[in-house]
């Protein structure tokens, strides 16, 4: 689209390099150590091309933010990568293994675990049971071995210890025995994230983890995400909160209208005209100088407005 065409011409950042990147920094650039590589992934809904990504690589061991206005195709991209939806075209690999056409549960088992934008806590299971469900390789989950408790008691105890640790870290330990249905929206987001961590994933994909989470908690959540990176887990997250994006991400990928329109380290990507285009529409008259002023960043203003609209929408559901 027009954004893409004019980007290399207008942007002085075109020739920039970055330690994470092989070659120059540009939309769809190759990474030094990618964990996910996707090629020609498209997904059409009727006449609408929700996702149309030519090439995308996600760096290993880093925190990558996927941003873009509502309807940009971020959630759809998540669905495609994790096997929850089938693309019209495209291939992708995770950790060197092709995942195209692999069912969702196998994707998760291979170490790529996602959370959902609209929380999917299991309401009539207790918080602890929710957590235990996240653990992998459980012997007690086999039909016949489940009948003989000695076969799985030890493992269950170990998983419970781990679940309790995570619950404590996410400040959900007081709710351990409550039904998940009784949690607040923000607590459910936390539970979902903690549950995903039970499986010790290599890559965790969080779809709007902060939406609806109490601001007092977001700080500690940021800490958790950073810890994940320290433990060697790669993180890919969708977020509308620019402070968070700026604060913790090592890399930012921007989607608009199904395409990757820009990527780069957070400091520079915010100033990319393609990003401003994406959020404010192609025919605005902000010039680049405004972005350097101390005034509010127009991207952030736009994002903030969107996030509010979005939250209002989520509450309806």
């Amino acid at each position: 689209m027009s954004n893409l065409d004019k980007n290399p011409v207008q942007s002085p950042a075109a020739a920039v390099t970055h330690p994470l990147v092989k070659g120059t920094v540009e939309p769809g650039c190759a990474k030094v150590d990618p964990i996910v590589i996707a090629d020609h992934v498209t997904r059409q809904f009727g006449g609408l091309k929700a996702v149309d990504v030519d090439h995308l690589e996600i760096p290993r061991g880093q925190i990558t933010a996927l941003i873009g206005p509502n309807g940009a195709g971020k959630t759809t991209m998540f669905n495609l990568l994790t096997g929850f939806d089938k693309p019209n075209t495209g291939t992708w690999e995770f950790d060197g293994k092709s995942l195209a056409g692999v069912p969702a549960f196998k994707v998760a088992r291979s170490g790529m675990v996602r959370t959902f934008q609209l929380t999917k806590s299991l309401g009539r299971l207790s918080v602890l049971q929710n957590m235990l469900l996240g653990a992998t390789g459980q012997r007690g989950e086999g039909l016949f071995s489940s009948l003989v408790k000695p076969l799985w008691r030890r493992q269950e105890e170990e998983n419970t210890v781990r679940a309790d640790e995570l619950l404590a870290r996410f400040k959900l330990d007081a709710k351990r025995e409550d039904y998940a249905a009784s949690l607040s929206g923000g607590q459910r987001k936390l539970l979902e994230m903690a549950r995903a961590l039970m499986s010790k994933p290599e890559l965790i994909m969080l779809d709007e983890p902060m939406a609806g989470v109490n601001p007092a908690l977001t700080q500690s959540l940021l800490g958790h995400i950073k810890n994940l990176k320290a433990d060697g887990t790669s993180v890919l997250f969708v977020e509308h909160d620019m402070h968070m994006v700026m604060h913790i991400s090592d890399w930012v990928i921007v989607m608009a209208e199904g395409r990757v329109v820009a990527e780069g380290p957070p400091e520079t990507v915010m100033k990319d005209p393609a990003v401003i285009d994406a959020y404010l529409g192609a025919h605005h008259d902000t010039d680049l100088g405004d972005l350097m002023d101390d005034g509010p960043n127009p991207v952030e203003v736009a994002l903030e407005a969107e996030r509010k609209a979005h939250d209002a929408h989520s509450e309806e559901k």
């Binding site: 994790t82 929850f84 969702a104 959902f116 806590s121 299991l122 049971q129 469900l133």
Partner: peptide, 17 residues
């Protein structure tokens, strides 16, 4: 636990492998 999870939301259970 798994089947009860499926009762609640099968996509969530799928996402857990």
């Amino acid at each position: 636990r798994v089947v009860k999870g499926i009762r609640e939301d099968e996509d969530a259970v799928r996402s857990l492998g």
